[in-house]
Design a protein around this nucleic acid. Sequence first.
DNA 1: CCAGTTAGCGCAATCGATTGCAATAACCGG
DNA 2: CCGGTTATTGCAATCGATTGCGCTAACTGG
Lengths: 338, 338
Amino acid sequence: MSATLKDIAKKLGIHPATVSRALNPRTSHLVNAATVTKVRKAAAAMDYVPNPMASGLRTSRSHTIGVVIPDLTNPLFPGMVRGIQDTLSRAGYTPLLVNTDNDPDEEAHVVASLSARRVDGFILATARRDHPLLADLSERYPIVLINRVSDSVQLPSVAADEQHGIRLAVEHLYGLGHRTIAHVAGPPWSSTGHERAQAFARTMRDHGLSTAKHVAAVDGWSIDSARDVALRLLSSDPSITAVVGANDQLALGTIAAARALKRRCPRDISIVGYNDMPFMDIVDPPLTTVRVPQNEIGSEAARLILSQLVEDVVTPVKQVRLTPELVIRGSTAPLRAR
Amino acid sequence: MSATLKDIAKKLGIHPATVSRALNPRTSHLVNAATVTKVRKAAAAMDYVPNPMASGLRTSRSHTIGVVIPDLTNPLFPGMVRGIQDTLSRAGYTPLLVNTDNDPDEEAHVVASLSARRVDGFILATARRDHPLLADLSERYPIVLINRVSDSVQLPSVAADEQHGIRLAVEHLYGLGHRTIAHVAGPPWSSTGHERAQAFARTMRDHGLSTAKHVAAVDGWSIDSARDVALRLLSSDPSITAVVGANDQLALGTIAAARALKRRCPRDISIVGYNDMPFMDIVDPPLTTVRVPQNEIGSEAARLILSQLVEDVVTPVKQVRLTPELVIRGSTAPLRAR
DNA sequence: CCAGTTAGCGCAATCGATTGCAATAACCGG
DNA sequence: CCGGTTATTGCAATCGATTGCGCTAACTGG
């Protein structure tokens, strides 16, 4: 089909090895400059495209990166994936995307199939804290964690500064006069759920507020389960006037619960989300939320994995934290006197 | 690193070719049954994983499919991508995902880079009707179009039955008493925009309604541009009591425009969307819309491309139309007497 | 002017799997 | 018992690019 190194060599009357060296920027200095330009021109003319399987077979590098995310249909992830893609492809790498649905078995399965594909590294967005594969995998591959950190092993990661983000949310509510602030927390087995809950407790403490009985965790990130949990939380203590959701879905579920309890948001209760997914500005009410830079998380993760691949020096494990910002919309309002 | 065919052969004292044949279901009948089981067991014990680069080099099949979509962050696509992924991976294929941002140059670029990767085929979700690459590409690769059809070349495609979907929307409004129904159409250069506009005109005609001056097209699929267009459309003719948006974003933009004109939805004006993206049930007002089976579109497309790859018989070009359904929510209401 | 570099390029092996062809042995019917 | 299948396996080439090694010629400095 397409031209090969041998074709170019034959046409130019030189050896394929020379063509290979001329075309590879890393070895072209071994070839006469005139020859290099001649080869380059011929390659362009015959529109030569290197065969990645051949070079991959020889060098055992596939120039692909496995990207493991829980669920692409969760609007949190497409932005990150785009960031990853754009940065990787600029460097000649291709992401291989897979979903896990947060299922450990499925996760083991997709990781196995990616390593069968001989990926050069992994970007993992899976949230589970106690991850059996992680330690093992990180010994055999370069890895970058996104949107989470690892408790046990020290691994490179890119995530939002959860402490800062939660502080933004809590202090926004505090500034509006709220004092009885609850937290609908994410699953404790998830990194972000855990971190945000910790950050919430700490920030409340810093302001001299109690969190006893005002934190309830869901077991998934769905609106529905958040609604159930929030329903119990809100009815157990009617003095709650504000809620921080551990992500946007949980905040939306809380809004639904409030509505079911005939408590109007933001009139009777203020609710803050986290992530700022698409369309959060047009839900009812428009959601005040903490925006995390999804694209940047993705591109930074891509940069980190690339640096692990090209540099032979063992760089220290980098744990990047990106700063989120507060987006104030219509789901929060000043506390009204009762 | 990992075991190779040669390793297995050596351990068993047989030739690598025999191992290869034994492990390949298509050729294992050439090998003694006892040998096959012996080889299988040894392969499993040494956890042999075939090297796709080696086999790809020899067979020039990469077992990858290029999936070209305009923008992953458009919530319409993740569902389709999941459908594609799940079906492809079950067949041992891996999708390679890329974005184009609806930019023809970028599109040419990503297609080139995918073909450099030696993909075995393409699934294209790019919407542009006049597609210069299409004819060319389809001669060199198996192709399936999704969420669109091709005007010029006859190509396999999977899309929603737009005529049916638009009819559902229009007749829903008609049934509610609306007679002056407008259409905020998608870009005329896009396949879906064009088709839905045609379907709208035809359905209106079938009901003896005029569409003159009640159709306006946007030049992108964004909420903002729809808002501008709808603003002009609605103020040009205050008798309009209902609008069909060519997709959900356009409907949302129309809602925003109506709000700016102090016309309340659904009280003063009914608005229907198309696609039923995530969260359309919790926007304000909850959007009545036409749901297209995103997952099924994806998995059907994957099935179509796979059938082109495995079957040597030249199957006739299949153009699949999936039936959408109407989801009635809060953005539509019976026409009120003025 | 000569020994010693160095630049430039060719040779050939290699990565791991696949496959047409050949070779061997077992087996069949007559 | 023999020519001819048939079943099973081995041999070796091949896919296309990479790279260590070695060869040749030019070039350098003393």
